[in-house]
């Protein structure tokens, strides 16, 4: 693949009928199936943990994270495992497409057109002839998780503090 400063290598994937992409450099691995261990009381977007060669990797359901509904005919759900410093995360997406080199000049830095939840993670949009690719910042995808809804905690007794 052509590599130059003028282009950016991104890995494209689909969630809820929309196209997204992250820098391919941060992608550690793509898994097509994995046993998930649920994490009770985790933020809603975290659907579980997967075990990847000795690492425990939290799985973020991108549909929930971006608050998008399922698109008909989502081909093959896949885990896009990304590295973020010491922590690894898996983004559960509807379908992993391809790695493209897209010209930097073609990336429009304006906000997303796919909803509020996506807006805070989208850093730019690249227009292909047939579709818009929303470039995501994995860092922001992760950071916003805790601001999202968390299932209510079942409490015993009373709360503290008078």
């Amino acid at each position: 693949m052509l590599k130059s400063d003028d282009t950016r290598d991104v890995c494209e994937f689909r969630v809820g009928g929309h196209s997204f992409a992250i820098d391919s450099e941060g992608v550690a691995e793509v898994l097509h199936s994995a046993a998930l261990t649920p994490v009770p009381l985790a933020p809603e977007a975290i659907v579980g943990l997967l075990h990847l060669r000795g690492r425990i990797v939290p799985v973020i359901d991108m549909r929930r994270r971006l608050e998008l509904s399922a698109a008909p005919g989502a081909a093959a759900p896949a885990h896009l495992v990304v590295r973020r410093a010491e922590d690894w995360y898996s983004l559960l997406v509807d379908e992993v497409l391809d790695v493209h080199a897209i010209p930097r000049a073609g990336i429009e830095p304006h906000a997303s057109s796919v909803g509020d939840a996506a807006a805070d993670a989208v850093t730019g949009v690249f227009a292909c002839p047939d579709r818009l690719i929303h470039i995501l910042d994995p860092e922001r995808v992760v950071q916003a998780i805790h601001r999202q809804r968390t299932p209510p905690l079942v409490r015993h007794g009373v709360t503290h503090g008078r």
């Binding site: 994490v39 690492r55 010491e86 998780i145």
Partner: peptide, 14 residues
């Protein structure tokens, strides 16, 4: 014992 990463550590239960 494996670390669970900052994201899950924030839950404060694990």
């Amino acid at each position: 014992v494996k670390p669970i990463g900052g994201l899950l550590a924030q839950i404060g239960l694990y």
